[in-house]
């Protein structure tokens, strides 16, 4: 998949996340599509792609949001680099592995966002953040994997045996 096309996917993901996904919330929470795509890019293309697409995805989100600039760049880039660093140790053809990785990376990402937001003066009670956001988003991100991973990997022209 060309980088241009992947950039298009990220832009569409940002748009969908701010519009259509609001109708599919669970307990007021929607999945973080951009994060899921950064994790996929890092798993399938390695460290450099993970860092790079984490930066691009985060930048698109920060431009769209307009405030707390840097929150998504720092967060997505960190997760992209982290998953990219360890992807060689994973059996990426297994959906269970990808689901678990996505869940764990989402927990780390949400915790990172919580720390950055607290630093920026946006205070949410820790118990509320954990129970109502961090765990729920991570779970929701993980359940999107079976629907998106094979499509994403096929679009990336990386062969995955059935």
């Amino acid at each position: 998949m060309s980088n241009f096309l992947l950039f298009g996917f990220f832009a569409v993901a940002v748009f969908i996340q701010s519009t259509v996904l609001n109708f599919f919330q669970i307990e007021g929470v929607k999945p973080d599509l951009v994060l899921v795509m950064v994790i996929f890019a890092a798993l399938l293309r390695g460290y450099k792609a993970g860092c790079g697409w984490g930066f691009v995805g985060g930048l698109l989100e920060d431009i769209y949001t307009g405030n707390f600039f840097g929150l998504n760049i720092l967060n997505k880039m960190f997760i992209g680099c982290l998953v990219g660093l360890v992807e060689k140790h994973f059996y990426k053809e297994s959906l269970v592995v990808v689901v678990t990785t996505t869940w764990f990376a989402s927990v780390v990402s949400s915790l990172g966002q919580y720390v950055l937001l607290t630093y920026a003066g946006f205070v949410v009670s820790p118990s509320l953040a954990l129970m109502k956001i961090i765990l729920l988003v991570s779970f929701y991100n993980a359940i999107t994997v079976p629907f998106l991973y094979r499509w994403f990997s096929r679009a990336s022209k990386i062969y995955i045996p059935d």
Binding site: I63, G66, G70, I73, L74, G121, F122
Partner: peptide, 24 residues
């Protein structure tokens, strides 16, 4: 990293940035 942390803090309570307004 430091630059982004400074920007993050500075834009936390500010009005929507001009590029975001255009995109919107």
């Amino acid at each position: 990293l430091i630059f982004l942390l400074i920007i993050l803090k500075a834009t936390a309570k500010k009005e929507l940035a001009p590029p975001a307004k255009t995109v919107r």
